[in-house]
Design a protein around this nucleic acid. Structure first.
Lengths: 165, 165
DNA sequence: AGTGAAACGACCGTAGA
DNA sequence: TCTACGGTCGTTTCACT
């Protein structure tokens, strides 16, 4: 095989991507179905011993390729109103992004190229909360020129990725 | 035991939202930090026995309030180009959403109100892949009138849960 | 809904091909 | 990087509160 990229350094932000073999992909798929599945059971599914699965999961986690975490459903918790908000910004976009990130109702912030400078996803209990969030918090941030709100009608597909640094 | 095959859909439609007490919130927080943390350890942290923690986690999961899953980092896997795509659609938006959902590179699809009918997040390896995805797959879907692409410059914040704060 | 106890199974470190 | 194995700890079931 080629030089094995055995990086034991735990999650360096600038580390290069690693190519996953079929087995690691299969392990990740197992954990995407159920993050609590036992290593032994995963091993049976992918044809590896329990210890080997454990080692690979540990390496994938330490390398920052994958994480096992709990995710919650806003709807089930009474947050009935979600929306994506496109923002046009003057000046420094990162400053606006940081302000947005401090708002608990804002769960997703990304700087973009295009007719919006920033996209932010928000989670609210109802329309009144959304209005207040927009007027009192988001549109009050210095540098925010305008917002356009895309109220969610139905979330159709969601696959959990992760990449915040 | 209980036949509970619910891996395909994270939502359980029709069920009412439930109010979480402080203990369940604490349990969810523990699993947010590490989805593989043992019930015993969580029990010590929240002041409950292992069996009690396990029961609550099982109920929260079955109710669709929470899921423990693996999330991956596209960047670490060589997917350097992410974008949000706003679509204008003629006719049935759900049909377009379903087509979009079948594309593996599309990890997020939501029907919206506003100047876009559908928002879709995509994950690509590079710009060429993005161009091909747009032209050959997305803009080829029947009913898609136009697309606007917001290329991600930097993902600034991403949360997987909202109800526990 | 919670606890406690005992049987069982999973997890972890170490050794070795 | 994997398997094998033994000690330890977590999970499961059940009887009880």
């Amino acid at each position: 095989m080629n030089a094995a990229p055995t990086n034991s350094s735990p999650r360096s932000p600038g580390s290069r991507p690693q190519q996953l073999d079929a087995v690691s992909k299969a392990i990740i798929e197992q954990l995407q179905e159920d993050g609590r599945r036992s290593y032994a059971e995963i091993g049976k599914a992918v044809g590896l011993s329990e210890a080997a699965v454990r080692q690979r999961v540990q390496k994938l986690t330490e390398a920052g390729v994958m994480q096992v975490v709990a995710v919650t459903d806003p709807m089930q918790l009474g947050f009935y109103r979600q929306a994506m908000i496109g923002l046009k910004v003057t000046g420094d976009t990162t400053a606006v992004a940081e302000e947005l990130g401090r708002i608990p109702s804002v769960d997703y912030v990304v700087l973009t190229a295009g007719s919006f400078d920033v996209l932010a996803e928000v989670v609210c209990e109802n329309d009144d909360d959304l209005i207040e969030l927009l007027n009192k918090r988001i549109r009050a941030i210095e540098g925010v020129l305008s917002t356009e709100t895309f109220v969610y009608l139905r979330l159709h597909k969601q696959f959990y990725n992760w990449g915040t640094r």
